[in-house]
Simulated scan of single mutants.
Amino acid sequence: MKKDNTNIDFENSIGPWLGKTGKLVDYFFQESFKSKNLDLTKEQMIVLKKLHDQDGLNQNELAFLTLRNKSSLTRLLTKMEKKNYIFRKQSKEDKRIKNVYLTEFGKEIFEKTKPVIHNLIATMEQNISLEEKQQIIKIFKKIQTNFCIKAEHI
């Protein structure tokens, strides 16, 4: 078997920097929630945000909006039900569908996350101009589009 001698310059490619940044963001989310005594993960906060925006989404819609597969979302929702953040209710139109709603406690928890999120965004965007921020977002959108196009051809 012939050996491929192609060098891969990871440090000068986007992937590792994107990955490291994502891990740092995740870490600071967790630490910030913990410091405010919020028993919450970033993933749970995302679900709370989606339901805050549109309460009563069904599980398929929620899976799509949170970029999770159905079984992983089901596990996440089960944990959130145990914490009394959400409840699921069978759809009146279609018994196979369950809609997801925030509990009053879930609404309170989401409200408590707002200053934490605001602080995290301020930290993340510190020393970054509006133009740089817009450029970063534009580049991330291009990367996402590249992967979506690639996924269509797999």
Rank of each mutant, 00 (worst) to 15 (best):
K133Q: 06
S91T: 05
K2D: 10
T41S: 12
I143P: 02
L57Q: 13
I8E: 00
N5D: 10
D55E: 07
F33R: 02
K141G: 01
R88W: 04
E132M: 05
K49H: 12
N60Q: 12
N119F: 05
F147V: 15
L130R: 13
F64Q: 10
T123M: 13
I14R: 01
N5E: 09
H118E: 10
G56K: 03
L76K: 04
N7A: 08
L48H: 03
G15K: 13
L40Q: 03
N37P: 00
I154G: 09
K23I: 10
F29K: 04
F140I: 12
K112H: 08
Y101R: 03
N7S: 12
E43M: 07
V116L: 06
Q135G: 04
L76W: 00
Q134E: 14
L18P: 04
F33D: 01
I109G: 01
L24K: 15
T41H: 03
L38G: 01
K50N: 13
E93G: 08
K2A: 13
S72T: 05
I143Q: 01
C148K: 14
K20Y: 13
A63V: 00
M124R: 07
K114R: 11
I109A: 07
T66V: 01
I8N: 05
N146L: 15
S13E: 07
N84P: 00
V47G: 01
D53S: 14
Q144E: 15
K95L: 10
Q59C: 03
T123A: 12
I139Q: 06
E11G: 08
K42R: 14
N37R: 11
M80N: 06
I86T: 11
V25W: 14
L51S: 10
L73Y: 03
Q90G: 13
E81D: 12
K133W: 00
L40K: 05
Q90N: 10
M1N: 06
G22W: 15
Q30P: 06
R68T: 00
D94M: 07
Y85C: 02
N12V: 02
L51N: 06
R68Q: 15
A122S: 12
Q54G: 09
D55S: 08
N12K: 06
K82S: 14
